[in-house]
């Protein structure tokens, strides 16, 4: 018996890459929604405007997660 027998790992490294790519947008969305809810609670009369601004921000953050999703197809 020589050395250790490593556990055999199969699968694609890209899966781990996507997991890493999802961390940033996850944090971003958390901050975005948290801050929006906070602002809505402070000023309920601004809710409509805050919500539409939130969705614009959501779209910009979300695209980072989705870029991680499509990267394996662009760089296989």
């Amino acid at each position: 018996m020589k050395g250790t027998t490593p556990v055999e790992i199969t699968g694609n490294l890209a899966v781990i890459g996507y997991g890493l790519a999802a961390i940033g947008p996850g944090i971003g969305l958390g901050i975005l929604f948290g801050k929006t809810i906070e602002s809505m609670a402070r000023q309920p009369e601004m809710s409509g405007q805050l919500r539409s601004t939130m969705f614009i921000g959501l779209a910009f953050i979300e695209v980072f997660g989705l870029l991680g999703l499509v990267t394996p197809f662009i760089f296989p």
Binding site: V63, L66, L67
Partner: peptide, 13 residues
């Protein structure tokens, strides 16, 4: 590019 990728990747996923 992001308009395209956002829509298509969401629906694909």
């Amino acid at each position: 590019a992001t308009l395209t990728i956002r829509l298509f990747a969401n629906m694909m996923a």
